[in-house]
Structure formats: structure tokens, C-alpha cells
């Protein structure tokens, strides 16, 4: 089936089998391997990407369902100037990753929430709910939670300055 995915603002005209999940098409057809498959049944969240700004498990979505829609992956997280996203800096600062396999999923989950919710820093319970959405086997989660809060606080400060 012919579809067009807009991934990180680049159009990808593709011919894909309907059964191919979004994650596989991003990884193999678009060659964006930053999105990882950790369980392929929607539990771990390593494959989380943003579809039209909303965080979704890309193993629980067919690529054909995303025809004409906008997808953002970890490769598209950095700023337009190529500088790191506040989340990327905060994850590093807080040791919120060790092996890094689940990391892109947590980053995109948090990126979607930060975009949708400029006051995230004031709602630690929403951050809890985000961190509670994905699995990580290395960090024990607390560093991830601290990193997301740190990035949210930084974003809030920047918003205030602006």
C-alpha cells in the first residue's frame, strides 16, 4: 500500500504491507533506528513515538494508519539549531539512562507531555503517571522522573523569560 509518512518534518513516500507496524517501518523503511522494539506487545513502551503530537506505542499502530500524518521520533528531538533538547540534557545530567535501550521511548513520552502541558513542572503527579507508562530495567525510574521534572522546570523558566 502506498502511503506518505511525515517523519521529523521529512516526507517519506513508502510502499508498505498493511501488516507492518509503525515501529518497523520507521526502523527499516525510513532507516530511523532510534525507535526500539522492546516487547512488541505494547507493554514496555520503548517504541513510543509522537503521532500528531501524541505519544503512542509504535508497535500497536500500523504504519498505514499513519498515512498523511506527522510522526516525531527521537531523531527529531533536538532543536532546530541542532542543540540538544532540554530532556536530552536532563536525562544525561540525572543518569536517567544506563544501557539506553528504553531511553528513546521515555524521551518521546516526556516530549509529548512537555509540549502539551507547559505547567508539567507544577504537577509531579503527572510526571509520575508518565514515568509509570514505560519499563526500564536499569535505572529504577527515579532518575528518569528527576530528569523529566528538571526539563519541565527548565522549560517553564524559558517560557517565563520569553
Amino acid at each position: 500500500m502506498k502511503i506518505t509518512l511525515t517523519v521529523n518534518a521529512t516526507d517519506y513516500p513508502l510502499d508498505v504491507e498493511p501488516r507492518r507496524i509503525l515501529a518497523d517501518v520507521l526502523r527499516e523503511d525510513c532507516r530511523l533506528t532510534g525507535t526500539h522494539l522492546g516487547c512488541e506487545h505494547g507493554v514496555c513502551g520503548a517504541c513510543t513515538v509522537l503521532v500528531d503530537g501524541e505519544a503512542v506505542r509504535s508497535c500497536l499502530m500500523l504504519a498505514v494508519q499513519c498515512d498523511g500524518r506527522s510522526v516525531r521520533t527521537v531523531e527529531g528531538l533536538a532543536g532546530a539549531d541542532g542543540g540538544p533538547h532540554p530532556l536530552q540534557r536532563a536525562f544525561s545530567a540525572e543518569h536517567a539512562l544506563q544501557c539506553g535501550f528504553c531511553t528513546p521511548g521515555f524521551l518521546m513520552l516526556a516530549a509529548g507531555a512537555l509540549d502539551a502541558d507547559p505547567d508539567l513542572a507544577e504537577h509531579p503527579e503527572r510526571v509520575d503517571s508518565l514515568v509509570g507508562s514505560n519499563l526500564c530495567r536499569c535505572t529504577g525510574y527515579a532518575p528518569i522522573r528527576r530528569a523529566i521534572l528538571r526539563a519541565a522546570e527548565e522549560q517553564q523558566r524559558l517560557d517565563l523569560q520569553a
Binding site: 498493511p18 507496524i21 506487545h41 500497536l60 499502530m61 500500523l62 498505514v64 494508519q65
Partner: peptide
């Protein structure tokens, strides 16, 4: 029928459901 797909695709990944037509109602 696929709407959210969060259960259907789980079942299909586990090969518990093998439809030959998926109707996307989105």
C-alpha cells in the same frame, strides 16, 4: 475492526487473532 488497536494488535502480535481483513474505522 480497528479503532484504537491497543488490544487487537496485541492479539495479532501474539497470533491469537489472524484476520484477513482489518477495517480501520478511524
Amino acid at each position: 475492526v480497528i479503532a484504537g488497536g491497543q488490544s487487537l494488535l496485541l492479539e495479532m502480535h501474539l497470533w491469537r487473532r489472524r484476520p484477513d481483513l482489518v477495517v480501520d474505522v478511524n
